[in-house]
Design a binder for these strands. Structure first.
Lengths: 109, 109
DNA sequence: AACCGACTTGCAGACTTCTGCAACTACGCA
DNA sequence: TGCGTAGTTGCAGAAGTCTGCAAGTCGGTT
């Protein structure tokens, strides 16, 4: 393989590593949405959203198509939702661990 | 929440977005390992590995402890393995889609 | 054909991340 | 106490990422 697998994996995770891109994916979990709707929900410059959508598109995580006068975006595979769910779970565990550590430290006075 | 949830998620994914960090996590899926072993498997400067381990540690994704004369690292939660598995699956689907697209393009001559 | 709304692209400046060298700390042992 | 192995930390230069303004493209409409 020209690009080692672990590098491809790293690139995929890095692709998800941006607040706007995460929000887009979360919104798209409910189904395809036009850019204008994403724009209404995300509070970011149109050009900036477009850049981030392009990053997701290049990575193959979302696909876009035209419908009526609008450009629609959709998750390229439902597996993306699983990834987000797994991320959510880890975040929950890590934050819980931190909180209990914090509580422990406080309890020690 | 002081830090919006989607930002915390983005940070977590970004933390995984580095080849060395991915390799470390994959090695740790098999159980705790001393730094020296990671170093033997990963081909990176010790200082650089240490930096990347620190990133993972700060994010709460791995934990470290001393055992004998060695510093050991371990996944902080087995859920990390699930996340890697989900990533692997998406990568598989995305690459397959690309390959079939590529094949299609070639078939068209 | 001219226009408009809906996006996308091209940048440049600001900012962040990565790498490797050098210096440093922490243990265990003679 | 003095050494050596095992890791970590401090940087600085190189490389990559992000943001928003300005300009451009693409389809519909009139």
């Amino acid at each position: 393989m020209s690009v080692p697998l672990y590098q491809a994996k790293a690139e995929m995770f890095r692709t998800l590593g941006h607040p706007v891109r995460i929000r887009v994916l979360e919104l798209l979990q409910a189904g395809p949405r036009p850019v204008r709707d994403l724009l209404a929900d995300i509070d970011v410059e149109p050009s900036s959203l477009s850049q981030q959508l392009a990053v997701l598109r290049r990575a193959g995580i979302v696909v876009s198509f035209r419908e009526g006068g609008l450009v629609m975006y959709a998750l390229s595979t439902p597996a993306v939702a699983d990834l987000l769910a797994a991320g959510r779970r880890i975040l929950g565990e890590v934050l819980t661990d931190r909180d209990s550590l914090l509580a422990e430290l406080k309890a020690r006075d």
